[in-house]
Computed example of a mutant assay.
Amino acid sequence: MAVKTIWPIDHTCGHHADRDLSDRPADRRAGFAEWLARQECTDCWRASNEGDEQDKAAWLKAKRAEEQTASEAWSEQYQMPPLEGTERAVPWGVRCRHQILTNAYTALVTEGTNSEAEWAEIEESARTVTRAGWWIDQRSSEPEDLTELLRAATGADRPTENPFF
């Protein structure tokens, strides 16, 4: 006799469902059916978690607003120029620039071996990059790579004359 594949499940919410467990190995069906019986049915679970998604969205919106305020204050304090880009990209770019530069300062100056004078050069170079998309693209970069990335963005690593012409 084969192990049954359709199992009657009485969920904790009071709903009943006949579940097809044929996709599970035969020796795991009974245990899974018991576990399902200790859960709400799918519809009740979704209904109870719907508010959680709204709470997460509200929390994320508040967190982004807080980060944006801090980033804009930082940009003003350190005289960073406004960024250029789409309506959506500019605020994101401002947050990314803030995070990238503060992380780099910590890694290179506070915890590293760069001097304040060396950092001032990096910061001045960063002021010349005003495309929001560039800062967004660099958001996962390592702080130690910032100098090289800024040189590439500003053309400082490109030869001034083309030897082939």
Rank of each mutant, 00 (worst) to 15 (best):
E34L: 13
R127G: 13
S141R: 13
L149D: 03
T86M: 02
T42N: 10
W74Q: 12
A37S: 14
G93S: 05
N114S: 09
D55P: 00
A152H: 06
R88W: 04
K61G: 04
A126W: 02
A58N: 08
R64A: 12
T102L: 03
V109K: 03
D55A: 03
T128G: 04
S71D: 02
E121Y: 02
R131V: 13
F165H: 12
H15D: 09
P8K: 12
A153E: 13
V94N: 00
V129I: 15
D23R: 04
P163L: 07
M80A: 14
S140E: 15
G93I: 09
E118Y: 03
P159L: 14
A33M: 05
A62Y: 04
P81G: 10
D18W: 02
A30Q: 11
N114F: 06
E121R: 12
N103M: 07
G51F: 03
I9H: 02
N162E: 08
T106R: 13
L149E: 07
R38I: 05
R38T: 15
V90W: 00
W35I: 08
H11R: 04
K56L: 08
N49W: 00
L108Q: 04
P82L: 07
E148I: 14
E34H: 05
L36P: 06
E118L: 08
A62W: 03
L146P: 05
A58Q: 10
E76A: 15
D52K: 00
A120P: 04
E123K: 08
E144W: 09
E50P: 00
L150S: 07
T69H: 07
L36C: 08
V3L: 07
C96P: 06
C96S: 10
D157A: 08
H98S: 06
W35Y: 14
D157R: 08
Q79F: 10
K4S: 10
M80S: 13
A65Q: 13
A156Q: 09
I100Y: 02
R19I: 12
P25L: 12
S75R: 09
T12D: 01
E50C: 01
A152V: 12
A152E: 13
Q138W: 11
C96N: 05
V129S: 02
L146S: 13
R139N: 11
A120C: 04
Q99P: 00
A89G: 08
G14A: 07
V94R: 08
E34Y: 05
T102E: 06
L149M: 14
R139I: 12
P8A: 11
E67P: 00
A70L: 07
R139F: 01
R139E: 12
E53Y: 01
A120T: 15
F165D: 15
A17F: 02
L101R: 08
T113H: 08
D20W: 01
E121G: 05
P81K: 05
N114L: 12
H15F: 02
I100L: 10
R29H: 09
T160P: 01
E50D: 09
T106E: 10
T5A: 10
E40L: 06
K4Q: 14
P81I: 01
D18E: 14
L146H: 07
E53A: 02
D43V: 02
T147R: 15
Y105F: 13
G51T: 07
T106A: 11
S125P: 01
L21Y: 00
A26Q: 08
E40V: 04
F164I: 14
A17P: 00
